[in-house]
C-alpha cells in the first residue's frame, strides 16, 4: 500500500458515494447512464469473486464489499426506485459492443487460463470502457449536472492515481501487471477530454455544456 494507491481507492469510493447521494438527495437519476452503472456492477462482481477464495486484508475485504454493495444499490435506485426519472431515451449506447469484444479479449489475453482469472481479466478490460455509455449520454444531451461532473472527475482521478501507484510499485516492489497497466492507461485516456472540460468550465463555476 502506498499513498497513490490509498488516495486512488478513496477517490473511487468518493465517486461511488457522490453518485449514490446525488440520486438519493435529488430523488432523481436524470443524466446518469444506467448502462454504465450496470457495467460497473458487473465489473465488481466478476473481479471480487476472490472474496470467496482468498483473504488479503481486512481493508481489502471491506472495500470490495462496499464497492459491490454500492454498485448494486445504485443500479437499484436507477432501475427500480427512481425509474421514472431515468433518462432511457438518451442512454442508448449499445453495451453488447463493449461486453462481447471485452469477453473475447479476456479469453485470449490473460495471466492464467482459469475461470476466476479470466473473470478478473474480463473485469479489468470492462472497467476501462464501462464509462463510455455515460460519456455517450452526456454527448447526446450536450450537458451534465455539476454534481455528475464531480462524480466523473473522482472516477477519472482514481484511475490516474493507480497509474502512479503502478509506477511506484514497479520501482519499489518490482511489481508489474501488464494487463492492469494497459487497461488502466486506456481508462485514464478516456477521461482526458472530460478532465479538460472539468478544469476549464466546472472549476470556473460554469455548468458543463458541450457546443451544439
Amino acid at each position: 500500500m502506498n499513498i497513490f494507491r490509498l488516495a486512488g481507492d478513496l477517490s473511487h469510493l468518493a465517486a461511488i458515494i457522490i453518485l449514490l447521494l446525488k440520486i438519493w438527495k435529488t430523488r432523481s437519476c436524470a443524466g446518469i447512464s444506467g448502462k454504465s452503472q450496470i457495467l460497473f456492477a458487473l465489473v465488481f462482481t466478476t473481479r471480487y469473486l476472490d472474496l470467496l477464495t482468498s483473504f488479503i486484508s481486512l481493508y481489502n475485504t471491506f472495500m470490495k464489499v462496499v464497492y459491490i454493495g454500492c454498485a448494486y444499490a445504485t443500479v437499484y435506485l436507477i432501475y427500480m426506485k427512481f425509474k421514472a426519472t431515468y433518462d432511457g431515451n438518451h442512454d442508448t449506447f449499445r453495451v453488447e459492443f463493449l461486453v462481447v469484444p471485452v469477453g473475447g479479449l479476456a479469453f485470449l489475453v490473460n495471466h492464467d487460463f482459469s475461470p476466476l482469472e479470466i473473470l478478473w481479466t474480463f473485469s479489468i478490460y470492462l472497467e476501462s470502457v464501462a464509462i463510455l455509455p455515460q460519456l455517450f449520454l452526456i454527448s447526446k444531451t450536450g450537458e451534465a449536472e455539476t454534481i455528475t461532473t464531480h462524480y466523473l472527475f473522482c472516477l477519472g482521478v482514481y484511475r490516474a492515481l493507480y497509474l502512479f501507484n503502478w509506477i511506484w510499485r514497479f520501482y519499489f516492489e518490482g511489481f508489474f501487471d501488464m494487463i492492469a497497466i494497459v487497461a488502466g492507461v486506456v481508462q485514464t485516456i478516456l477521461y482526458c477530454d472530460f478532465f479538460y472540460l472539468y478544469v476549464t468550465k466546472v472549476l470556473k463555476g460554469k455548468k458543463l455544456s458541450l457546443p451544439a
Binding site: R47, D50, S54, I56, N60, E117, A180
Partner: peptide
Amino acid sequence: TDKTTGHDEL
C-alpha cells in the same frame, strides 16, 4: 509472482 493467490488491488 504467484497468480493463483489473488490480486491485492481493488
